[in-house]
């Protein structure tokens, strides 16, 4: 009889312990709960399904074209990149259908904007924002969960597309993949995600700033169209007005200087950064993004660069886009953190 209470005690102790373990294991932080819910919302939304099918369609078209021209592309001995089969898969074209990375440079912003333009204002409009903010969670967790969840959706989506492409190529050609190619494709994917993330951060910023979802969406699309179309026209107009009328009078150094200046101005547009970076990453023989003088060209052997060198060339682009994303995100923090939340 004496051992009875002891065994009970032990039992209850074990119960307690398992309980506490369960709490430790099965109580996710509020942030994770929010991210999980946001991802579920994104996956179920029609908006994302439509955009994903659009991107999948363009991906299929680009892949179809590149697979049909892959023979000529890899057989072209005058092209220093002809040995990189998988990079060719991503870049080879028939001059009618553009390659996949060009599609992404157009559809990426749209994807980013559509995932973020109503992140905060829709919650405010529905009266759910105040309900969530009345719970014991940090205010920044809300913004961060919006950004992280959409970022994760984009990451999974683009990565699986690229992996599909690699697997398809492997099945179709049976050619082994070079480690360098894998790295380049991985870097390309990462940069594409960063590019979409920039537009996502921008649209979240606008969703904090504007009460109406439509205003935020139209402003974001306006910025996108301005930067992709009108900005280049504007730069050309300004350059024509400001630069000396006859370039023959200038020394070669001056011409290079002006050229670099124009390129730098163009690189304010994130689309330009993306195009610069992806072409360099996917075409190993690209060795400079600016003008190259004859003397520099004379000594150069037309051979592909190692991955590290290509990465070094696009590093300014990477940091530029990263900085722009951070600025947008920080700005939305600034706007949101001390704002009064009313329904």
């Amino acid at each position: 009889m004496k051992c009875l209470p002891v065994s009970f005690k032990e039992l209850s102790l074990r119960n307690n312990r398992s309980n506490s373990r369960r709490t430790a294991w099965h109580t996710p932080s509020p942030f994770r709960v929010m991210v999980r819910k946001e991802i579920a919302d994104h996956i179920r939304s029609w908006r994302l399904i439509v955009l994903m099918s659009l991107i999948v369609l363009t991906f299929a078209a680009a892949m179809y074209v590149s697979l049909s021209t892959i023979g000529t592309a890899t057989g072209n001995l005058s092209d220093p990149d002809h040995t990189f089969l998988y990079l060719k898969l991503l870049t080879a074209t028939d001059k009618v259908v553009p390659p996949f990375h060009v599609f992404i440079s157009f559809l990426g912003p749209l994807l980013g904007i559509s995932l973020g333009f109503d992140a905060v204002n829709a919650e405010q409009g529905n009266g759910t924002l105040i309900r969530i903010m009345a719970q014991p969670i940090y205010r920044d967790n809300l913004l961060l969960s919006k950004f992280v969840s959409a970022g994760m959706v984009v990451t999974v989506f683009l990565t699986s597309l690229v992996l599909l492409m690699t697997g398809g190529g492997l099945l179709f050609t049976g050619v082994r993949m070079e480690p360098q190619e894998a790295l380049r494709i991985l870097a390309f994917t990462a940069f594409s995600i960063l590019y979409v993330a920039f537009w996502l951060a921008l649209s979240i910023l606008l969703s904090v700033r504007f009460r109406q979802g439509a205003t935020a969406a139209l402003t974001a699309i306006g910025i996108w169209i301005f930067l992709t179309v009108f900005y280049q026209l504007l730069i050309k107009l300004v350059v024509r007005a400001v630069l000396p009328a006859n370039p023959e009078m200038l020394s070669p150094e001056q011409i290079i200087g002006y050229n670099n200046m124009i390129l730098d101005l163009l690189r304010i547009a994130p689309g330009q950064l993306y195009t610069d970076a992806t072409t360099t990453l996917l075409m190993p023989s690209v060795r400079s993004l600016g003008p190259v003088s004859m003397e520099e060209m004379a000594g150069a052997v037309p051979a592909p660069l190692p991955f590290k060198e290509s990465l070094m060339i696009v590093w300014p682009q990477v940091s530029g886009l990263l900085a722009a994303t951070t600025v947008c995100f920080a700005w939305s923090y600034y706007l949101f953190m001390r704002r009064e939340i009313r329904s």
Binding site: D41, N126, G127, T128, I130, R131, A134, Q135, P136, I137, S343
Partner: peptide
């Protein structure tokens, strides 16, 4: 907020 429950005047839910 951990110990206070607040019901706003126009309470909204995820539809």
């Amino acid at each position: 907020k951990r110990s206070v429950g607040y019901m706003p005047d126009s309470v909204g839910f995820y539809d």
